[in-house]
C-alpha cells in the first residue's frame, strides 16, 4: 500500500467511526515507515476536522462525534510511541488537561468536552474524577498543558475549583497555564470570582473559550 493510500485509510476510518480500521491503518503506517506525523496530520486530524464540521452543521450528532474521537484516540495510541521514537511532536492547536475536582465523580460533561476538543484539533489528557489539587499540580508539571479544565457538578464540590487555582498559585504554576471551569453549578461570575481564565456553559462554548485563550480565532 502506498503512503497516500494508508493515510486516506486513516482519514476514512475516522469518518466511519471504525476503530478497527483505524488501528490497522496505524499499524500499516508504522510497517510501511510512513512519517507518523504526516499520517496524524493528513489522516486523523483531517478526518476529525471534517467530523467536527458535520457536527456543527447538524448533519451528525454527539454519539458519532464521540465515536470519531475515540477512533482517532485509538489510532494515536499506536502512532504516538512511534512519534516519540523519532523525537517528533504533534502540531496540535494546544494541549488541554481535563479533570473533575476532588469529591466529585461526575464525568460525562468532561468526556464530551474532551471529544469536542479532540475534534477541533487539540491534544487532550483526561486525568479522571475526584482529582485532588495536588494531583492536578503533579500532572501539570508532567504534561505541561496550555489549558487546564476543572469540572464540578455539585454545589458542594464547586469550591474545589477555587482550591485548585489557589494551589496552582502557591506552586508557582498559575501563570504557566490557562484555567477554565465548567459544570452545571458554575457560571461566568463564579469564574471571575475565583480568578479562572474562562467558563463554558456547554462543550461547544468550552472549545470556543479554549481557542480564544490560546489565540486561535475562527
Amino acid at each position: 500500500m502506498s503512503a497516500e493510500k494508508v493515510i486516506e485509510k486513516l482519514r476514512l476510518a475516522v469518518l466511519d467511526y471504525n476503530t478497527d480500521e483505524a488501528v490497522s491503518a496505524a499499524e500499516e503506517v508504522i510497517k510501511l515507515r510512513v512519517d507518523p506525523l504526516r499520517a496524524i496530520e493528513d489522516g486523523l486530524a483531517k478526518g476529525i476536522r471534517e467530523v467536527g464540521e458535520k457536527f456543527a452543521n447538524g448533519e451528525i450528532f454527539l454519539p458519532e462525534l464521540i465515536m470519531a474521537a475515540e477512533t482517532m484516540k485509538k489510532a494515536l495510541e499506536v502512532l504516538e510511541p512511534e512519534l516519540k521514537k523519532e523525537k517528533k511532536e504533534r502540531k496540535a492547536l494546544g494541549k488541554v488537561l481535563l479533570g473533575t475536582v476532588a469529591g466529585d465523580i461526575h464525568s460525562i460533561g468532561k468526556t464530551i468536552v474532551a471529544s469536542m476538543l479532540t475534534a477541533n484539533g487539540f491534544e487532550v489528557y483526561d486525568i479522571g474524577e475526584d482529582v485532588p489539587a495536588e494531583k492536578f499540580v503533579e500532572k501539570i508539571k508532567e504534561l505541561k498543558p496550555d489549558v487546564v479544565g476543572l469540572s464540578a457538578l455539585l454545589t458542594t464540590t464547586l469550591p474545589e475549583q477555587r482550591t485548585v487555582i489557589e494551589t496552582l498559585k502557591r506552586e508557582g504554576l498559575r501563570d504557566k497555564v490557562k484555567v477554565i471551569i465548567g459544570g452545571a453549578p458554575a457560571s461566568k461570575e463564579w469564574a471571575e470570582e475565583i480568578g479562572a481564565d474562562g467558563y463554558g456553559a456547554n462543550a461547544t462554548e468550552a472549545v470556543e473559550v479554549v481557542k480564544k485563550l490560546l489565540g486561535h480565532f475562527k
Binding site: 447538524g58 450528532f61 454527539l62 454519539p63 460525562i108 460533561g109 464530551i112 456547554n202 462543550a203
Partner: peptide, 8 residues
C-alpha cells in the same frame, strides 16, 4: 436521555 446535539 441525553440530547444528541447539546449534550444536555
Amino acid at each position: 436521555a441525553i440530547d444528541v446535539r447539546e449534550a444536555s
